[in-house]
């Protein structure tokens, strides 16, 4: 359709933060209950699982936004001609890494959803601590998860920075610079939560 690019790109930017970014933080915080033991994790996971209208919440807060973000995101990756070797500026590297982590995150999410949500939905696996314990017992898969989580949190934190620019919130170079530091802190904090939960399963 003609002249929809502006709307789609703005929607893409918004969805990355609301609801996907919010969901990401919620997901990693719930995972973090694993640090306090299997009982604690199962209780938190089952609370999320037993939320009313769960399937509606999943479709509209998780599946549809992520599918839209992923499809347009792959297109955005495709139309860029990266040039960090010629222009090695910090923001150009962030631009490049945002695209690389986007692709890694997409592969990771597809894999992760297949192993967990799809298997549980088909009734072949049970939602509990041991599901993740078995998955992460394989060291190759464990490190794949570590890379996947770090890539996701980077993509979220750096995406938050460009969200602030795309929505015209940070306009001056100074506000953009401070937003860089702020989103770096977001990256470190969310990564800590995510990675600490992973290590709780091994």
């Amino acid at each position: 359709m003609e002249n929809r690019e502006f709307f789609y790109r703005r929607l893409h930017s918004l969805l990355g933060v609301v609801p996907i970014g919010i969901f990401l933080i919620q997901h990693l915080v719930v995972n973090h209950f694993a640090v306090y033991g299997p009982e604690s994790f199962n209780k938190a996971a089952h609370f999320m699982h037993d939320l009313p209208f769960r399937i509606v919440l999943e479709i509209f807060i998780i599946f549809l936004p992520i599918i839209f973000h992923a499809v347009l995101g792959v297109y955005i990756v495709f139309v860029a001609k990266n040039n960090v070797s010629r222009y090695g500026f910090f923001r150009n590297w962030m631009f490049y890494l945002q695209r690389i982590t986007g692709i890694i995150t997409l592969v990771f999410i597809v894999w992760h959803v297949w192993e967990t949500r799809v298997q549980i939905g088909m009734g072949t696996k049970e939602l509990d601590y041991s599901l993740m314990e078995n998955i992460l017992a394989n060291p190759v898969i464990f490190w794949f998860y570590v890379i996947g989580v770090v890539s996701t949190t980077f993509h979220f934190a750096n995406g938050l920075w460009s969200f602030l620019v795309s929505w015209g919130i940070t306009v001056t170079p100074r506000s953009q610079k401070i937003a860089t530091y702020a989103t770096l802190l977001v990256f470190l904090a969310v990564t800590y939560i995510g990675i600490r939960a992973l290590f709780a399963f091994v």
Partner: peptide, 18 residues
């Protein structure tokens, strides 16, 4: 600027200002 090929094409690599 809101038409296709306009402002939305910016990916904030910020090479331009450099």
């Amino acid at each position: 600027l809101m038409e296709d090929g306009g402002l939305a094409g910016c990916g904030n690599s910020q090479n331009c200002v450099q």
